[in-house]
Structure formats: C-alpha cells, structure tokens
C-alpha cells in the first residue's frame, strides 16, 4: 500500500465516559464500519476493532473518563486513548496476561480476565503506554495495513 500519502489523514475523536456500559463499544463499532467503507481488509479491521474495543472498555471500567482519537490513512491507523484516572502504578505487571484489578462487580459482567492490554499489544504493530498515578493513562497504537 502507498504510504507516501500526500493527503492529510482522516481524524476523529470520541468521548468515552466512565461507567457508561450502555454506550460502551459504540466508538469501536463506528470505527469498524468506517474502515469497511474505506476498503481496509478484514484482517486490519479485526485488529483495529479488538484494539479499540479493549482500550475503550478500559477507559469505561478503570478510569474517570477520556477520549479516543483515531487517525486513518491508507498505510496505517493510529489510535490514541487518553484518560484521566488512577493511572497504572506498575505497567509491566498490568501488561501480563491474566493481571487484573477489576472488582467483583466488573468480573460478574464478564470483564476482568486481564487480557485487554495483552490483546491490544498483540493487535498493534506499535504499542506505547504511558501512565501517571492519580493523573491518567495514555495509550498509542499503530496498526499497519
């Protein structure tokens, strides 16, 4: 695919509210539909869908609220999730499969397997995470097409 794209990437932003389980997943679903219309392959759409859904759910569950920025150009899709919240004290630990601090209430809803961050990492071609305790977390993911 032509990555020397002269056009500006397409940008959009979504607000993600803490504890809003009704609308949770809406942003990911919208992004997924757009990628289909833009002509990205099923493989890319699936990776983006999983990565955005997991990052969106983490904002809903673990933070106080945040935003999801998406930039699309033919060569790659960039997802930046920023939230205000408790942050992650030990990122290495949080990145491990199965690590979760999700409370019982959340586990009953089927979340809290501790697979979100590892899944994001395996879907993304580039993955950056930065977190400050009691301020918030930023995650940037790039998925190449």
């Amino acid at each position: 695919m032509d990555t020397n794209n002269v056009n500006e990437p397409m940008k959009m932003q979504f607000d993600i509210a803490h504890d809003d389980f009704i609308r949770a997943g809406e942003a990911s679903s919208k992004i997924k539909k757009m990628l289909l219309q833009l002509g990205f392959s099923g493989r890319v759409i699936r990776k983006v869908a999983i990565a955005t859904y997991e990052v969106e759910m983490n904002i809903v569950i673990h933070s106080w609220g945040g935003t999801l920025d998406v930039e699309i150009d033919p060569g790659s899709i960039t997802i930046i999730a920023r939230d205000r919240g408790p942050g992650i004290p030990n990122i290495d630990e949080a990145m491990q499969e199965g690590f979760s601090t999700a409370p019982e209430k959340i586990r009953e809803m089927g979340f809290g397997a501790g697979m979100g961050l590892p899944n994001m990492k395996s879907c993304a071609d580039e993955f950056f995470i930065d977190s400050v305790v009691n301020k918030g977390t930023t995650i940037k993911m790039i998925i190449n097409s």
Binding site: N5, N7, P9, M10, L36, Q37, L38, G39, D73, P74
Partner: peptide, 16 residues
C-alpha cells in the same frame, strides 16, 4: 467490497 466508497483509498477517505 460492496460497501467500499471507492477503489482508491485516498479518494474513499475524501468521500468519507
């Protein structure tokens, strides 16, 4: 690829 807006992805982005 029926739902694709354009064969050319740059054009598809513009259309979007």
């Amino acid at each position: 690829s029926i739902l694709k807006l354009d064969e050319d992805m740059n054009l598809a982005i513009q259309k979007m």
